[in-house]
Amino acid sequence: MNVPGERPILEARGLTRRFGGLVAVNNFSFSVHEDAIHGLIGPNGAGKTTTFNVISGFYAPTAGRVLFRGLDISGRKTSALAAMGLVRTFQGSTLFQEFSVLDNVRVGRHLGARAGFLSRLIGTDRISEREADAKARETLAFFGLEELAGEPVSNLPHGHQRMLGMAVALAAEPKVLLLDEPFTGMNPEETRRMMALVRRIRDRGVTIMLVEHDMQAVMNLCDIITVMNFGALLVEGAPEAVRNDPAVIEAYLGSTDGAGHAS
């Protein structure tokens, strides 16, 4: 296993997000170190997705800050964050369902395939587009999806759609990748393959933060795990320590939903 770097690449400090009276994320702090696989877990409704939404710029934080490579990025636009190297995936199959598999990944290459308006019009963007195409196919090959490049997404089984979602994100060449429940709806075999892929992505120098309910996967994969409950930090530590922490067990048993997942 790689040893995560010392430098925090992504930090949250006192992050808070309210929806009307509901406090979805409450004074939450954590730091993710470079080259780590960092788990974020907690019972249903704990605020994990909301945390991702705030980090990735979909919601502005009500209070607190997000630092990316030491830079305060709170409240910046999602697209600007992607350009800086912070990319997230979505819970569920959020894809361009009407596109082919390849076109999905081509959209993911948006930032890499820059060209002026006129050069798009007269077709001199061909060089950068061919490059983007090659990169897109390479990314598909990485996930073993190259055979399916021409298929419409709606023909893909669920497991493949989840992988494609990661491929789209990876095509944007992130420095930090936020994965929201990458293993849900996958059978054990698919989960195993996906875990190997996540490791390989990390080995390519991408820091990973992931939310996941599959405890076995989380414990096996992550270098460090942050547990949140009711929007706030509960425990943070190495997988073994977290697994045996009474507060964590209590939190999961307290929520019937979470207990089901945490088998």
Binding site: F58, S79, A82, F90, F99, D125, A172
Partner: peptide, 26 residues
Amino acid sequence: RIERSRIGLTFHAIHWQDRLAESVGV
């Protein structure tokens, strides 16, 4: 030409999933 270029692809992408498009830098 605009529609057939990457600009058109991006327009379509925004139509179908603006949040996903946004998350990869659009």
